[in-house]
Amino acid sequence: MNKSTPINKKLTGSIILCIVFILFAQAYQSDLKNLMKTIFESGWLSKILWTYVICVLCFHRYLFASYELAKDSFMYKHFGTYADTLFGISTYGVAGSTSIALLKGLYMQTFFDGKHFMGFGTFDLISMFLLTSFLFVYCIFNTTILLKEIIFYSANAVVEVRT
């Protein structure tokens, strides 16, 4: 008797969604390029990022998070919650907005013949893109983890430290 493996619906749906997105991007390539240019030039990405980081870190530090883990940080030990919050906001905000500015320059130079990084070769630009996109994803990912802790916060949760 053959027992068939059930279909992974999430993975299958993700693959289908990726294929549809790629086909859509190919069909409307020039429209999407101009849309991305408009988004980058509007300045809204940076404003949205700063708003997201400030709100999430303030709520996380002051309203929801227990400071058992934060108490181990240098900033919290020496300067308290206020400085730890400001340092977190500035770290993620500056990292995110800087990466947006660099990605904008790379995008404009690649697709619209802009001259943002003169003297850089193809390898340098590719390296810059990889590092900048990693920095952007790192900023968004870590801030989203803090948001997840806020959303799924439970006052009854017990933290057990084992040695």
Rank of each mutant, 00 (worst) to 15 (best):
residue 102 L to F: 10
residue 108 M to V: 02
residue 124 D to F: 04
residue 28 Y to N: 15
residue 49 L to Y: 11
residue 149 E to F: 01
residue 111 F to S: 06
residue 134 F to R: 00
residue 162 R to L: 11
residue 83 A to W: 09
residue 88 G to L: 04
residue 61 R to D: 13
residue 57 L to Y: 09
residue 142 N to F: 08
residue 68 E to R: 15
residue 84 D to G: 12
residue 143 T to D: 00
residue 157 A to D: 08
residue 138 Y to K: 03
residue 53 V to D: 01
residue 44 W to N: 14
residue 63 L to Q: 12
residue 114 G to S: 11
residue 71 K to L: 12
residue 129 F to L: 11
residue 146 L to Q: 02
residue 36 M to K: 10
residue 28 Y to M: 13
residue 101 A to R: 07
residue 109 Q to G: 01
residue 126 I to F: 09
residue 154 S to N: 14
residue 153 Y to W: 07
residue 79 F to S: 13
residue 56 V to T: 14
residue 32 L to G: 10
residue 26 Q to T: 11
residue 140 I to K: 00
residue 131 L to Q: 06
residue 43 G to I: 13
residue 124 D to K: 07
residue 105 G to S: 08
residue 132 T to S: 13
residue 105 G to R: 03
residue 32 L to W: 05
residue 110 T to K: 02
residue 105 G to K: 04
residue 70 A to F: 09
residue 70 A to W: 09
residue 112 F to E: 05
residue 77 K to C: 14
residue 17 L to N: 01
residue 145 I to F: 03
residue 98 T to L: 11
residue 135 L to I: 10
residue 71 K to T: 14
residue 111 F to G: 06
residue 60 H to V: 03
residue 35 L to R: 06
residue 143 T to N: 00
residue 102 L to R: 05
residue 153 Y to Q: 00
residue 103 L to E: 07
residue 77 K to H: 13
residue 106 L to V: 04
residue 101 A to M: 10
residue 104 K to C: 07
residue 112 F to D: 02
residue 55 C to D: 09
residue 121 G to D: 06
residue 124 D to S: 12
residue 70 A to N: 13
residue 91 T to C: 02
residue 51 T to D: 09
residue 107 Y to F: 15
residue 103 L to C: 10
residue 158 V to K: 10
residue 60 H to E: 04
